[in-house]
Design a protein around this nucleic acid. Structure first.
Lengths: 195, 195
DNA sequence: CGACACATGTAACACGTTACATGATTTG
DNA sequence: CAAATCATGTAACGTGTTACATGTGTCG
């Protein structure tokens, strides 16, 4: 959803042609997350399908311009006005992995956590070093480094969480869950109400 | 990728039928992130396509069992052995939104950040309250609450990041970027090399 | 009987991503 | 000329997600 919204927000500044959108996107978000060109045209088609943009004229140089619609502008306003909601069932891979792994017989969950800590720590180190080189006095640099700092703070949170998990699991070692055999359960149909 | 891997990891414990996989998944990861049943059969087909599971026999009650293959077990081992890699171009929605918004003329980026802080703070409060009610002495509860604590630590990181961003942007206010007019750029073809 | 849980499956869709085809234009 | 960039687009695929159809068996 974010690429889509980003392109739309750029188009809200004025009509653009596809390749230009890519340039603008990269320029604004830093080349870190460079978009594949094909995705632009893809996304534009989908935005058009949803009535948020329209295909405009082709200029003398053959550029195919796209223009945002009223509905599109409204969508941008909504996007900017409303905070990003972190949904409950966010299905973060690491969270799911550790939660599940903690229930699996034959898995040394503590080892999994420690291995993750090593990797996350290495990443944190790398991000920290790179972020330290950002010129905090240059507004453009500060903006360009936002994704970097976001990754850094996220890594920090991840490390804190891992330490917390390690501690909790250590003080109260989890018992792995075996598969529930279907023999233990009622065959089919509505089960007896638990008392 | 995480749902897929999770189901595979459960199947590594022994053959299961579709509905059972859902039960096991919910039981192990907490009903927070309850899976839609349809997705199970979907994912199983895809796993079979990739040679990681095979359709097994149907038992007397009509349950269609699935069995993991050698390749599947190997994939599970790899998954558990390797830490989760946070890729660089992670395209987090909030990160992308703020980065982009900071470059858009007509957008009060400070207001956007503040609104997000309010929302994130509210979420943090909620998560904190709920996590406080978890019985840290019960191993099963601790595991079941892992997604909750993960969300909590992530929210904490988000708040820290937002505070950091607010401060940086305040001390060095960003200059919004206008669209680059194509008139200012070379027409088509390879551009002149920048000196 | 009706509601509900158990159980399997299909079909469509969302967004993101990549590979590929095609061609114009300019620089070296 | 060759290579690189500018530029548009198509086609396919990946996972996640949901809606729907269909049926069985049990409990109240």
């Amino acid at each position: 959803m974010s690429v889509r919204q980003s392109l739309l927000a750029i188009l809200d500044q004025g009509p653009c042609y596809g390749y230009q959108l890519r340039t603008e996107f990269d320029r604004r978000t830093g080349s870190i997350s460079s978009l594949n060109v094909g995705q632009i045209y893809n996304t534009l088609d989908r935005l058009e399908r949803d009535g948020l943009v329209t295909k405009d004229e082709v200029d003398a140089e053959g550029h195919v311009y796209w223009r945002i619609t009223r509905a599109g502008s409204a969508a941008v306003r909504d996007w900017l006005d409303a905070p990003v909601a972190r949904t409950e069932g966010t299905r973060d891979e690491l969270t799911l992995k550790l939660t599940l792994a903690a229930t699996l017989p034959g898995v040394d969950i503590a080892a999994v956590v420690r291995a993750q800590e090593v990797a996350s720590r290495a990443r944190w180190d790398d991000l920290t070093a790179r972020y330290a080189q950002v010129d905090a006095g240059d507004p453009a640099s500060v903006i360009a480094a936002l994704p970097l700092s976001a990754a850094l703070f996220a890594a920090e949170g991840e490390l804190r969480w891992l330490a917390h998990v390690e501690q909790r699991l250590a003080s109260h070692p989890p018992r792995a869950m075996a598969l529930e055999l279907s023999a233990e359960k009622p065959k089919r149909g509505r089960p007896a109400r638990r008392v």
